[in-house]
């Protein structure tokens, strides 16, 4: 910061660097305060700015995918690949359906009343989307998909891949949407243990995810009903996630120091390593709860 270094190297601006730093720091701090206190980041002006990047990201993502595909599948005929992708998409859809059917069966034997509500989940309208860019830092996991408001996507819609939950849309533009994945260290989902219907919190963890796992905690289970391999699904008390979407399988159980709750690890059902295509559920929790309360009112009336 010595005043000796004021050489400008013949640049056009002659403002010394430290003043520039000071001014731009103030600008950045002001930006932090404005954008974290208001909802301006989701306004049209901001989201359309990012839309400008979309064609480049899409093109380069395709280029990257192309490179990798060439590397792995040298000699493969293109039509076979297309067919394969189509079939994979079908498998994904069928696996999801299958999971829901299994759940339905479970609910049917245990909670007949809930079954009727749950049966509609497989009928959720979904749309497939491609991942075109990922968070550039190595700390958090969020990614950009190639569909946006034009395809009916809105903030807080749930994203699944294969048979498991991937994350939630947290920003959307006309032709892109940003998805925060559940494995991201700053993400948390309210879940339910399918075997006992007890609620717990699933939190992403960079540390655990390096071993392919994420963490769950705050499970109240005094009678030791939780077992390794149990399914964890999204809970019905979450206001962002639809109930009954498979998150993963319990892989480790530890009692907490307070002796009241338990925590542990789970293996996510969706494979995050080579995530390429995802499904966005176009039904939102808010709509669903409005609908279902409507139905209940009708039922209770007579």
């Amino acid at each position: 910061m010595s005043p000796i270094i004021k050489k400008t190297g013949g640049e056009k601006f002659t403002l010394p660097g430290k003043y520039l730093l000071f001014i731009l720091s103030l600008v950045a701090v002001a930006l932090i305060m404005i954008t974290s206190a208001t909802d301006i980041m989701n306004s049209r002006a901001f989201t359309s700015l990012e839309s400008a990047l979309y064609p480049f990201q899409r093109g380069l993502a395709n280029a990257g995918a192309w490179l990798i595909r060439r590397k792995i599948e040298i000699g493969n005929i293109r039509s076979l690949q297309a067919e394969n992708e189509e079939l994979k998409r079908q498998i994904d859809a069928l696996t999801t359906e299958n999971i829901y059917l299994q759940q339905d069966e479970y609910e049917l034997t245990n909670l007949r009343r809930l079954y009727e509500l749950d049966a509609q989940y497989q009928n959720f309208e979904k749309t497939g989307a491609r991942i075109i860019a990922k968070d550039g830092s190595n700390w958090y996991q969020s990614f950009i998909i190639d569909k946006g408001t034009d395809d009916g996507i809105a903030v807080d819609m749930n994203v699944i891949a294969g048979s498991g939950l991937v994350g939630r849309v947290n920003a959307v533009g006309s032709n892109w949407a940003r998805v925060q994945s559940i494995i991201s260290d700053n993400a948390a989902v309210s879940g339910t243990l399918l075997s006992s219907s007890d609620n717990l919190i699933v939190t992403g963890s960079l540390e655990l995810y390096k071993n392919g796992r994420i963490a769950w905690s705050k499970l109240v289970d005094p009678t030791d009903r939780v077992a390794i391999g149990d399914k964890i699904v999204t809970s019905n008390i979450s206001d962002k996630f639809l109930p009954g979407i498979l998150i993963g399988y319990v892989s480790d159980i530890k009692p907490d120091a307070n002796n009241l709750t338990k925590s542990g690890e789970l293996i996510p059902a969706a494979s995050f390593e080579h995530l390429d295509e995802v499904l966005v559920i176009l039904t939102m929790k808010q709509e669903l709860s409005e609908e279902s309360t409507g139905i209940e009112d009708e039922e209770e009336a007579p």
Binding site: A28, L31, S36, M41, L49, L53, A171
Partner: peptide, 9 residues
């Protein structure tokens, strides 16, 4: 920040 941050700065 624009593309991946939840706030700018």
């Amino acid at each position: 920040d624009l593309v991946f941050g939840s706030y700018l700065g």
